[in-house]
Design a protein around this nucleic acid. Structure first.
Lengths: 143, 143
DNA sequence: TAATAAAGTTAGAATACACTAACTATATTC
DNA sequence: GAATATAGTTAGTGTATTCTAACTTTATTA
């Protein structure tokens, strides 16, 4: 597909907005992305041109089937990273969110797959003994 | 300091070039960064303006003390990430290099500190028992 | 040393992303 | 339903990064 970072962020924002609002609007996306409405407008216009969303003027924004698939892909990548930062490194939600957002465009599929497996591995370790989890938390939290 | 990504990359490339060549030249940086010489030229010009390097026309490039300090900082961040991708996820050197390069600008100090501690924690786990390492490798390598 | 090759520089253009200011359309409310 | 507020749009601008093409300087070599 080869979407730019901005467009991927926009798709992800639309996906999240759908869950919070009955209709997705420029305003919500601008808030969620932390940019001004003209920036969102440009991104949505481009996504429309690419056939990933539909957007009637002054109306709400909807995915096309292809757009939704793309958005889900982006979001999946994001979640793996978010999980790493919160669950493993124990970082606050907002920091984890920021980190994941900045990074998600810079990891190829294979690296993400490895990371995902790594997370599962650590989960299984934690289940085996909470000694592991406890020691990890101590190491990361100490001053 | 607030250097742009490109300038940070450039500082890092200069640092690495120093180790390989008696003098650092535009040509080397261009190869190392994978960009054309005019791009390097512009970056070096800006680094000069910022007092981080010295560069006489058609000559070689040298750090100022401040420039070297900045470069070392950038490189330190890079190394933590590189270590994570090679040592933990077991990714090839070139992929790890790319990943680290793309990501290093998107993690704050605290996140990197946590990651660094996490790496040390895993190292100590591996030393305790090579069961840990073996199982991790198996999990990550399986088809 | 004159000709050629290599390296470095400059100018100009393109893409991605963000902004402000000004304008238009829709919604709200008196 | 007219006045106002909110949301959306358009036009123009700025920064960061990259490129190509053309030119200049330095190095090589015949």
């Amino acid at each position: 597909m080869g979407l730019t970072e901005g467009l991927q962020d926009c798709l992800k924002a639309i996906l999240l907005c759908e869950k919070k609002h009955p209709f997705v609007r420029t305003k919500h996306l601008a808030q969620s992305l932390g940019v001004k409405s003209p920036s969102v407008h440009a991104a949505v216009k481009e996504l429309t041109r690419l056939g990933l969303v539909e957007h009637e003027s002054y109306g709400h924004i909807e995915f096309t089937p292809r757009g939704r698939r793309e958005a889900e892909l982006v979001y999946t990548r994001h979640k793996v990273l978010y999980r790493f930062f919160t669950e493993i490194l124990g970082l606050p939600e907002d920091v984890s969110e920021n980190n994941a957002c900045g990074i998600e465009h810079h990891l190829d599929e294979n690296s993400l797959e490895k990371l995902s497996r790594f997370l599962d591995f650590l989960d299984s370790k934690s289940e085996e003994s909470d000694k592991f989890t406890r020691e990890l938390r101590e190491t990361l939290d100490e001053e």
